[in-house]
Each structure stands twice: as C-alpha cells, then as structure tokens.
Design a protein around this nucleic acid. Structure first.
Lengths: 213, 213
DNA sequence: CCTCAATCTTGTCATCGTCAAGATTACGGG
DNA sequence: CCCGTAATCTTGACGATGACAAGATTGAGG
C-alpha cells in the first residue's frame, strides 16, 4: 500500500508528506471546483486546502496555475479524442458515422462541461503557445472529424469543395452548438439536456445535404 | 512660476479629482488590455494605473471586477446587435440577407476579438444571472438572426422544421466559426483573416440548402 | 545503514479586490 | 456671490492569491 502511514507517529501529523498521487488529485479536484464554482474559483491554494496539503504543495507539480489548467485541458482533449474515435468506429455507414461523431461531440460537452470549459473557454494570455501534448491531443480529435467528413463527402460526390473546408464547417457547427449550450447562451431555448441533444442531432443530420451540394 | 493663480497650487497634484468620464475610460482601457495581454490581465488596479487614477477609483463606478466586465460585454452586444441589424437591412433578398448577416457575425468577431472574448469567452461564476441590459442586448442580436432565418426559410419552403431550430443551427454555425477563429483553434488552417472570412462566407452559403430541405 | 533525490511544509513577498474614511470638486439654491 | 451637499477621487488597510526560498520528511537504492 502506498498509503501506509503507520510509521513515525511522533511528528505533528504522521503522513502529511508524500501524498501519493498529488498531481492527479489536483487535476481531479480542479474539475470538481470548476463544476461547483466556475473556472475563476480554481485556485492553487483552494485546491491545496481541499486536499489537505500545504498551500505551496501544488507548486512542486505544476510550474504555475496556467500549467495546471493546461494539464487539465490536455487530459480533456485526450478523453475527447477517444470519445470521438470510439463513436466513429462504432458506425460503418458514412452518413450515420457523421451523425454519430456529431452526437459524440455534443454528448461530451454535455457530459463534461468542466473539461470543455478548460479546453476551449479558457482565455489564453496573449502570445501563448500551447504545450506539444496539448496540440497533439487536440489535433487527434480534429483528425477524426476530418476523416469522417472526407469519407462522407466522397460518397456523396459533391462539387470540388476542399475537404478541409467541409470539415471546418461541420466542426464549427457542432462546436458552436456545444459552446452555446455550455456557456448558457442557449439553455433557455431547450427543455433540458435531452432536448438539446435531440435537436443537435437533427441539426447535424440536416447539415449533411450541404456536403453533397 | 511659483505663484500659480489658477487653483490651489499647494496640493500635490492639481486636477486629480474628477477625471471627467472615468467610467467610459475604464471600459475602453479594459478593451486595450484584453487586446494586449488577454482577459486575465484585466485588473482594476492595472486599469487605474494606466489611467493615472488611484487604485480604488474604479470601485466607485463598478461594484466589482465582474460588474466592469459585464458592462464591457453589454456594450459589445450593443455594437454587435447594431452591426447585425445594419447588415440585415442592407439586403432585401432573403438569401443574400442570410449571407450578409453571417458575414457580419464573422466580421465583428474578427474586428473586435476583445469584445467577443468578453461577450462569450468569459466564464460565468456558477449561478450567475446576467444583468437585464446584458440579456436585452444579446436577445436583440439573436432576434435579428432569427428573423432573417425565418424569412429565408419561408421563401425556400422546406419541411415543417421549427424556425427556432433552423435559427439555432445557423447561429451555431457562425458562432462556432467565430469562436474557433478567436481562440486560435483554427487560425493555422487559414492564410489570414481575409481567407477566414472568405471561407466562412462560402460555408454559410452552402448551409442555405439545409434550410430548404 | 546511509546517502540522496523526491516530496511536502513553513515562511515570506508583491499584487489583487474590496472596504472604510477622509479629501477635493462640482453644482445649484439662497 | 456664497455655501452646503452630493459626487468623485485618494489614502490606508485587510484578507486572499500566486510564487519563491529554505528547511523538514520520506522513500528508494547502493
């Protein structure tokens, strides 16, 4: 057991050094805080408090607050890409696969709004260059989407519109729906999450005709 | 000379009270800071410093930092709604009007990224209820969009899809493109702003077929 | 057993948002 | 013209935050 703190009971608090997996714990706690109180409430000191460690402990695992959030976002993109890939693999017919990946996009946003907020809603400083891993995972997600759009466009055989342009359109459509849902700009327009997802799927389905035009 | 007869030369700095229009100056300066250093760098103290007033001066015009940003966002929505209305009025043919409003949406995002970031990119605390004026201006923008979509849908005479659903789709499409451009997720895919806007217009144009399906 | 690197704590500093109290100024009624 | 009041701004203070430095504790390997 990593959490064996039966030794040295003489000191103030026995097992307060070597938390075990503080780094992952901080990431997990950050997500909880975002969910409960919003992104602005994510504070290294608050996280430390909630985990029962000292206020400077997070500094040993993340260079600064930004680095912590970047790691959360990267983990989010990893899950996100995996979800999109799984949705794409589960369907073989191009049209249904396109709908499936759109559904997965919206479902992820609705399932993990906290992740989504850190992934996209975070305002980058100015000349901020995201870490390699961050770029890699987000590109993976985009690659799945592009591939699905390409396969569908080939089947539909539309004009000579570049695949990238069609993919950008499809991406924007689902991304816009997700963002409007996440930040509450469109919540009042739906009865609830189920209504949002159902409407989103119909919108995605209707957008298919544009790919074959 | 030493004998300044204009007014109380004994005091430290003569005209440091009554700035004139500090409230508007703070809003304008906030936009500059967002543009230069990002949203997180918007600090009441920094704004005060840049304007040459005391660190507590902003507190007399805005209840707190959030209120300041809310006012910036409200002003942004006012300009935004006006831009959309103007674009809609300038075109009478339903299809071109639809394209025009989409173009205006993207152009506003590209022209005023700072406004856009505050309007949408700001993470609301948790149970945050936006001020009335904020809701009013944002609803005005949405109303323009809905009206244009309705007119076009009537002309195209598609199925019985609710107008709100078509409007939501159109809104999501342009909103997604704008957000992806603003936060840099899609900048690498375009040669520049002109390329982005041209591509965006083509995407919007292609989406029209979905409204008549 | 003993050293050493990883991990965490304590202490400190500059900055931030916010509040309270006082100073300055504008403005309108006498 | 004068004066009082309200609006505006300054100064000062407090708690909280991010970040750093130095020291304490712990685990792992030689």
């Amino acid at each position: 057991m990593l959490t064996n703190m039966s030794r040295s009971p003489r000191r103030k608090r026995p097992g307060h050094y070597h938390h075990g997996d503080l780094k992952q714990a901080l990431i997990a706690e950050a997500l909880k805080v975002i969910d409960e109180q919003g992104l602005a409430a994510v504070t290294t000191r608050a996280l430390a408090r909630r985990l029962g460690v000292s206020h400077a402990a997070p500094g040993h695992h993340f260079a600064d607050r930004e680095a912590l959030l970047a790691e959360v976002a990267t983990e989010g993109f990893r899950l996100f890409a995996a979800a999109l890939e799984q949705a794409a693999w589960a369907e073989s017919e191009p049209g249904e696969r396109f709908v499936a990946i759109g559904r997965a996009y919206l479902r992820f946003a609705a399932d993990h709004p906290s992740y989504f907020r850190v992934m996209f809603g975070r305002g980058f400083p100015k000349g901020y260059h995201p870490p390699d891993q961050f770029r890699r995972e987000s590109n993976r997600a985009y690659a799945v989407l592009t591939g699905v759009v390409r396969d569908l466009a080939l089947v539909l055989g539309g004009d000579a519109t570049p695949i990238d342009e069609l993919a950008f359109g499809a991406w924007s459509l689902v991304h816009g729906m997700a963002m409007l849902w996440i930040d509450g700009s469109a919540t009042y327009a739906f009865a609830g999450r189920a209504d949002f997802e159902a409407t989103g799927e119909r919108v995605v389905r209707r957008s298919i005709v544009g790919l074959g035009a």
